[in-house]
Design a protein around this nucleic acid. Structure first.
Lengths: 146, 146
DNA sequence: TGCAATTAAATTGTGTACAATCAAAGCAAA
DNA sequence: TTTGCTTTGATTGTACACAATTTAATTGCA
């Protein structure tokens, strides 16, 4: 009853599935730490971009995070409501919305630096393995990004 | 202005982010192929389990897919509506819901075998790299799974 | 110049994801 | 056997995620 023709559609032979499951499970591990900051994972990675760049358009945020305006608009409004960023139209190009981190948003960074340290332990990869995984993932992302 | 203290919360230094982005981007690549089968990615991986096991409880599906009943219940109802599976309570234990693939669901497998072949090309990894990635992902999943 | 094509966000609708809670069923110890 | 604990799915509420459409602004070109 073993039909090798069908091996290709066995869950255990997929590469996408462990990728999908792994991402979800790791994000679940983040939750208790991010709850302390009152941030979701999506809000957290968005703030990460702003901590580094201070000011970005929605388009730039979308490119950095692989998210579109349909996802970003409500997340940005939520973070604006929390006082971590401001949203305003560009005077050069009224179509562009400029997102800028506030002082309160900057201050959050001080508490957020603890999150990667707390998370680091749970992956259980050596630094070589982590580097290898990192390289493979960005190789795939680079290939898909066109 | 380079503050190495903050390097840990740069997006580019995260391992979870490329994992999350990669999973999403690959699932996006699946979409045109899965559209031909009128399946979403979640529906597709659920059917994958049923193609192999024929019959599973919701609990077993949840363990296989890393999903809970809050996600599975609506997906199962949708697939039941499409005629690909049936849902019925176990007579041994009325708490358990037994999910069984139908003939129509089995038939879908014949068309689904083409999907992995069509997808294989877009990853652009050698088989060594794919094996390495696979191993690393399951190592993480194994560690997180307790 | 004037208008068609393009671009940037926002909106709408569908489909997950998951925490928290609930209800029903089974189990277990006194 | 009855009460309390556990297990299993379903439900509810919140938060993405993205395709498709809409709106407003800008650009390109005849």
């Amino acid at each position: 009853m073993d039909e090798p023709i069908y091996d290709a559609i066995k869950l255990e032979n997929q590469l996408c599935f462990p990728l999908y499951a792994c991402a979800k499970e790791i994000i679940r591990q983040y939750k208790p730490h991010l709850d302390e900051l009152d941030l979701t994972y999506t809000q957290y990675i968005l703030m990460m971009v702003l901590w580094e760049k201070k000011t970005q358009t929605v388009k730039e945020l979308g490119q950095a995070l692989y998210l579109d305006s349909g996802t970003l608009t409500p997340v940005l409004k939520k973070l604006e409501g929390k006082g971590y960023l401001t949203r305003s139209r560009s005077t050069q190009d009224e179509r562009s919305l400029i997102v800028t981190v506030t002082e309160k948003g900057e201050a959050l960074k001080e508490r957020a630096v603890e999150v990667p340290r707390k998370m680091g332990e749970c992956l259980a990869l050596t630094s070589e393995e982590a580097g290898l995984l990192y390289g493979l993932l960005y190789k795939i992302l680079g290939r898909l990004n066109r």
